[in-house]
Design a binder for these strands. Structure first.
Lengths: 341, 341
DNA sequence: TCATGGCGTGAAGGCGCTAGCGTCTGCACC
DNA sequence: GGTGCAGACGCTAGCGCCTTCACGCCATGA
């Protein structure tokens, strides 16, 4: 099945057809072919038919590098997220990629991790390609801000609502989400939460929201733990081991993602504990697994797909009429009570 | 937090600097600046320093649309996978995106789903952007084959080793993987496997490999079930319910992904069964959860990161010397026996 | 001293396409 | 038959950059 050595170049036959080739073949000017490609209804029926045929015969595929250069519109948007695996942004990303390509827009994917240098490189790369928009999730460094302000690309910060967005923001208040989780747990009578926070700005905002509300309720301070981002299933072993070493077992574990929550449940069950009777668990993100796990996981639903759609609408809106837009789009969140807490 | 209406355009200050601006400021020709940007070591030390300063002062960011057009090299590769969520390609994708952007190459992401039309659109879009390579996973339709053969882009099929790859292939034999799972289960004394296959070419090859080997061992035919792709955690409920309705309970469930395997384990445990004593489970892909689940999941390890690296090496190799390359790169696989079977 | 050869640089011609500006044609109307 | 008016189309000047070619300069060796 291996060993044969070939030159993969050999598949190429001749040179790719250009607008000129098509135009010559159809007996029209390049301008008309260009119009046909970008705006078919402005060319006459008969001409359109000839051009269509010429394109089919030549196998012409437009060169968007040239087109983008000439029109200074790239029909490309960059989407920058920290991780792909076990990521809370998965739904957003999936919807984004689906809807953008359905609309004929190319998606440039960038994985920033937690590195500022990497982030800046990716922003620079995006601007280099003259993307129409940059969809971004994460903290904005001064360098990034400067580059972005200089660029005509629309800058969209998603999954958060910063006070001073550079462009526009589509997200929700993480502080409020944390607060609502605290209220929910208090209403259910939980007394000793253990808060597991991932090392990231947004997770910290939720944590602060939770703790502030919790303390406002005249409760003792919750115990806490921290995990690296992304907050994954696999972190659960250590987290659970730590919990067992606490002086007093918490009665509920507040997790930064449903994957981590799932892991904690698995560990608890394996240790012979009942969930939620012996220990309750709360997730975040309402990933599909939250409703599918046994027990089902109480979580905070964030409509990732809607975030994607709002972002895309903003892009379309701007490239169209250039209307003034809302600077913040709050998609809210919703606590979904299930079996685990 | 909302309501203020602004024009996000207001962030733009003037026009982006071009090569000419930098050249004028540094007192050199555009050719020299271009050389500095693409191949710094060929310009003299002192000149380089002047150019560096000019770039910093102007905030120049190269226009890769123009650069690509002129050089007919886009420094961009398209990566086309079916899904992002719960996908077995996640590791490959993550590594791909990390290493490519580290190498200054832009990643164009395309989600093909299971639609041939969508796939063809994405291939066309990739060629439109004159990508250097297309990394592809899935069946190749005649239309795709034709477009790809006409294009100078390197076509790399990953996660599989088709008999007649269009460009090159990086993967492993799914048939052999299925066969080895069968052998493993026979050696462990299992008698009644239940095979859950996702609706996809590769999954079917594994299934065929499994069944052929199983029957060769003078065993009764296994029971089977099928799930939509991607084979996810959430499918487990239905699968498990079906299993319970079988005349005879299987003693092992062979799953198309670790996520599904995880789901089956959760269902089994929730039903009071012991894993693997009452029912064993085998996954596929050796995702991180396989080693983290309780019980840990027996799975087939495929080095997704290596697939990514081999693919990238092939691209680099070709754009460099253009050496003849292996047409097939077999990264193999490895059955990892753990607690669940 | 003079040829030789690098090395660093500049000039100029595209790369393939778009968009503004103009022209031409056909048709309705007077 | 002349006029006006669109609709359809062609011309042309770039978009910003890369790359070949040629040139001048200086160090080297004979």
């Amino acid at each position: 099945m291996t060993g044969t050595t070939v030159d993969p170049f050999d598949t190429l036959v001749g040179k790719a057809a250009t607008l000129d080739d098509v135009a010559a073949r159809a007996g029209v000017s390049t301008a008309t072919v260009s119009r046909f490609v970008n705006n078919p209804q402005v060319v006459a029926k008969a001409t359109a038919e000839r051009i269509r045929a010429a394109i089919a015969e030549t196998g012409y595929i437009p060169n968007l590098l040239a087109g983008g250069l000439a029109s200074s519109k790239s029909k490309m948007v960059a989407v920058l997220i920290p991780y792909l695996t076990d990521s809370i942004f998965n739904d957003t990303m999936q919807t984004m990629a689906e809807e953008l390509s359905a609309a004929g827009t190319t998606v440039m994917l960038g994985l920033t991790g937690v590195s500022e240098a990497r982030t800046e490189d990716l922003i620079r790369a995006a601007i280099s390609r003259r993307v129409d928009a940059i969809i971004f999730t994460g903290p904005v460094t001064p360098n990034v801000e400067q580059m972005v302000r200089r660029s005509p690309a629309l800058f969209i910060q998603v999954w958060d609502l910063p006070e001073h967005p550079i462009g526009i923001a589509v997200g929700f208040s993480h502080h409020a989400a944390g607060r609502d989780i605290a209220r929910f747990l208090m209403s259910r009578g939980y007394r000793r939460p253990h808060v597991v926070t991932a090392q990231g700005a947004r997770a910290n905002m939720r944590r602060d929201g939770f703790v502030a509300e919790w303390l406002a309720g005249e409760n003792a301070a919750p115990t806490e733990a921290s995990v690296e981002v992304p907050s994954r299933f696999g972190h659960a072993r250590r987290i659970f081991a730590e919990i067992r070493r606490l002086d007093e077992m918490p009665d509920v574990v507040v997790c930064g993602s449903d994957y981590l929550a799932q892991g904690v449940i698995v560990e608890a069950l394996a240790a012979g504990l009942r969930v939620p009777e012996d220990i309750a668990v709360v997730g975040f993100g309402n990933s599909s697994i939250a409703g599918e796990m046994r027990p089902t996981i109480t979580s905070v639903e964030v409509d990732g797909a809607r975030i994607a759609r709002e972002a895309i609408a903003a892009i379309r809106n701007r490239s169209g009429a250039g209307l003034p837009q809302e600077r913040w789009i709050d998609v809210g969140f919703r606590l979904v009570a299930r079996e685990s807490a």
